[in-house]
Design a protein around this nucleic acid. Structure first.
Lengths: 218, 218
DNA sequence: TAGATTGTTAATCGATTAACAATC
DNA sequence: TAGATTGTTAATCGATTAACAATC
């Protein structure tokens, strides 16, 4: 039913739909039209219908969409009906925060272990997740069928870790290191570039400031 | 020179250009053509020239671009030539990690204080940043000319904090809470939705798995 | 049945790529 | 000057929006 060549633009919107539908569901809303959802989410009704129809017809003419069904379906499309096993690589501040963050909130995403090169960090636990030396990474991934490697190492270390990872059966890398990783195409990469995000914010601040100056508000 | 109506697509690419140019600069590269940069960054030379020309002509025909000049210019466009003062709101795991992360790396972005409602967290220090009770937030922002509020509170608390923030002189919110904030348009918002990012990764894993099944690889 | 709302096709808009004249 | 490469216009591509026939 759902096919390749669904644009990243559409995929990027799915989690947001999922979030709003989850909220509606817990508010006890049973059905919703693209029109209503459009009002709540600030996107066009047309876009909503187009987006959903990439994956087949979830709605019913004259009625709209069943909130619960749609929520479930999008969850399934996003792969949230499966358990995803993870390892953390780089047990610094950010890494520790991610373990706590993900463990708390997402039932389907489970950290099985963390890895670090620093002996001060290994041997400890982060929440209920053990921290091992990096050497044990490849063996652990394959023995435990790990799907996702969360990369929270310094910029300089990222490429080396990547080289280790590509020789394992890892399926995906959630990359927090400030580099672009080049990996074989059967490994999925999702970047979270905090630097870049902060720079965009900085850009928008500057633009807004300059606008104000121009329009004489200051 | 640079005008409004520069698309978010272009702005989103600037930090990446900045990163690559910074690397080239520290490698001692003096000049580069759009052609060469295209090869390194995996984007078209045409796009590179179009992007830069949104902000005026930084290049020279027959020569290319001076790496250092271009790096400086993009930094200026991104507002990196200015100091940005920040406060953290929500001194949990993620918040603490962000203070450490940003303090270490970005000279221009400086945390002045952190705020939390939990008395167990207030009164302490994160790195060299003091943690105060949330009540003191509005006063602190205006007394210290704070530009950016970093929102690392649970989903449920985000709207309340936002209501406090909009009555201060804050310029921007770097939002890590899993909600869409509605703010007046003179406050800039940049969302880092880790959940959404992880779901996209999950989607891509599922798609790739299904492709393999279809093509009979498994 | 009549009214509502989807699924889907067509029109529009914007962003990317290609091409080339200007110029260093 | 000749060669190289930009800045910029034109062509293409893709994504968003509008419109409407299908249908619940």
């Amino acid at each position: 039913m759902e096919d390749r060549s669904i644009s990243q633009a559409v995929i990027g919107r799915l989690p947001r739909y999922y979030r709003y539908l989850g909220d509606l569901r817990s508010e006890g809303v049973e059905r919703i039209s693209s029109q209503e959802l459009s009002g709540i989410m600030n996107v066009t009704a047309s876009q909503i219908r187009q987006d959903f129809n990439n994956f087949g017809g979830f709605g019913q003419q004259g009625y709209g969409y069943n909130v619960n069904t749609l929520y479930q379906e999008i969850g399934r499309i996003l792969g949230l009906d499966k358990i995803h096993t993870m390892v953390l690589i780089g047990a610094g501040n950010l890494g520790q925060a991610l373990v706590n963050y993900v463990s708390l909130k997402n039932r389907g995403f489970i950290f099985k272990a963390a890895f670090d090169t620093d002996p001060k960090r290994t041997g400890r636990m982060i929440a209920d997740v053990p921290v091992y030396p990096l050497e044990r990474l490849p063996e652990f991934i394959d023995a435990n069928n790990i799907e996702i490697a969360v990369l929270a190492v310094p910029r300089g270390a990222a490429a080396d870790v990547k080289d280790i990872l590509v020789h394992t059966g890892i399926k995906a890398i959630w990359n927090f290191a400030h580099v672009d990783l080049e990996v074989p195409e059967d490994i999925q990469v999702e970047n979270v570039h905090l630097h870049d995000s902060l720079m965009k914010l900085s850009y928008n601040i500057r633009c807004h400031d300059e606008e104000e100056v121009k329009s004489g508000k200051r």
